Computed example of a mutant assay.
Amino acid sequence: MTTASNSTAPWPAGGEPFDAQIHRLWTDSLAWTTQHGLQIIAAGIGAAIIVLLLVALKRFGLRLCRNHTNRNEWPFIIGQALGKTRLWFMVAVAAQLVATYADAPVYLGRTIAFFFTVASVLQVAVWARVLILGLIAHRAGGAANASSLGSAMGIIRLLVTIAVFAIAAIVILDNLGVNVTGLIAGLGIGGIAIGLAAQGIFQDLFAALSILFDKPFQRGEGISYDTTSGSVEAIGLKSTRIRSATGEEIVISNANLLNKELRNFTRLKRRRMIHRFGVIYQTAPDVLASIPAKVRAIVEAEPKTEFLRCGMVGLGASSLDFELQYDIRSTDYEEVFATNHRVLIAILTQFNAEGVDFAYPTQTTFTAAPDGRMVMPYPEPAGHDTSPAAT
């Protein structure tokens, strides 16, 4: 890297030694204070007012943080950013105002401008880091604490910090006259090489960020993925761990998890139950016509159910087929399971009490004699006379 022209350097270039430059800076500063005393005082008053305003703004931010304990809401995030206003930034702002208004000498003016540039860029980087991390936490809706990507937020903070302060360093060097073109090009080529080498890792990382922002599911929710159903136990930067209904832990990469259809059972406001049952063909037509009303009364007896429909849907090979549809207004699967159990037991109890028989697969065999006359399909009991005289 090469430096630019001397006009942007903190001190003018020249052949005089460093101690001579310091002596010149001191003498020029003394001469300036004696010749521009009134201007320095006026600028100092203005700078003091600005510093007081910045201090008040910082205290206001700290008060916001105390009054709003939810770290994922905007009042806390903005208050945290304001509370990160540094004293050295305030001093740099005040010094730059005095130097500009009071027409400071070249040596002193460029020295103050140098420190003002560094302080301003670093302060902006601090604010940007807080706001970016706050935006991520706000968009995640509390995932940083426990419900989703809490384990990944540490690495996300590290990546955001590196990116923000790397940009700040480049901006500082560019403002100081350093040619950063080669540095930026080198960083770009290095980033491409790293991205190609760790393509799979970054793919899962961006998938994790998609889960963080889009929130298709959170930790503790029940989901169904491909042939897997279970409860989400942990969401990491590379993989998600699901505890299946049979007890084993299933680890799925985040990229694969988002590439297929995924069902979230926890966010169901209601669950629809669909049951098919059949009764025997010997059931009387008037009894068949009364079945929907009986089933409806059983379903509506439950407090969180909504009856939809029930009726005959087909003539089966060995049964008269009915279908029942109703909703259970609950997001708790245990409650849904128990309600469905009570409804089915009540239907079975009432049908048994009224003599309505459920059908099951049956088959009747008819046997014919050589002349085509139907005969009994089983041999006659020994000693049993079936002749007309016996009857």
Rank of each mutant, 00 (worst) to 15 (best):
A9Y: 10
G14F: 13
P17E: 00
F18P: 00
F18Y: 15
A20G: 12
I22D: 08
W26D: 14
D28Y: 05
L30K: 06
H36C: 12
I41V: 15
A43H: 04
A47G: 11
A48K: 04
A48C: 13
I50Q: 03
L54M: 15
L57G: 10
G61H: 02
L64R: 07
C65T: 13
R71S: 04
E73Y: 05
G79P: 05
G79A: 03
Q80N: 14
F89N: 02
L108H: 07
T111A: 00
I112S: 04
A125L: 12
A125E: 11
A125N: 04
V126P: 02
V130D: 05
V130E: 08
A137C: 13
A137D: 15
A140W: 04
S148C: 08
G154I: 15
T161Y: 00
T161M: 14
I162Y: 10
V164H: 03
I167Y: 10
A168H: 04
V171Q: 10
I172L: 05
D174P: 04
V178W: 06
T181I: 04
G190E: 07
G195T: 06
L196V: 14
Q199T: 05
I201P: 04
D204I: 01
L205C: 06
F206T: 08
D214W: 02
K215V: 13
P216A: 04
G220N: 09
G220F: 12
T227H: 01
G230H: 01
S231T: 12
I235Y: 02
I235S: 02
G236D: 09
G247N: 07
E248K: 14
N254V: 05
E261I: 07
R263N: 09
R263T: 15
I274D: 13
R276D: 15
F277V: 07
F277T: 06
P285D: 14
A297G: 14
I298S: 02
T305Y: 14
G311N: 11
G314P: 09
L320T: 05
L320Y: 11
F322C: 09
Q325R: 05
Q325S: 13
Q325E: 15
Q325H: 13
E335P: 00
V336P: 08
R342W: 11
V343F: 03
I347C: 09
I347G: 02
T349D: 15
T349L: 12
Q350S: 06
Q350P: 09
E354R: 01
T362D: 14
T365K: 12
A368L: 12
M374A: 14
M374S: 05
P377E: 07
P379C: 02
T386S: 06
T391N: 08
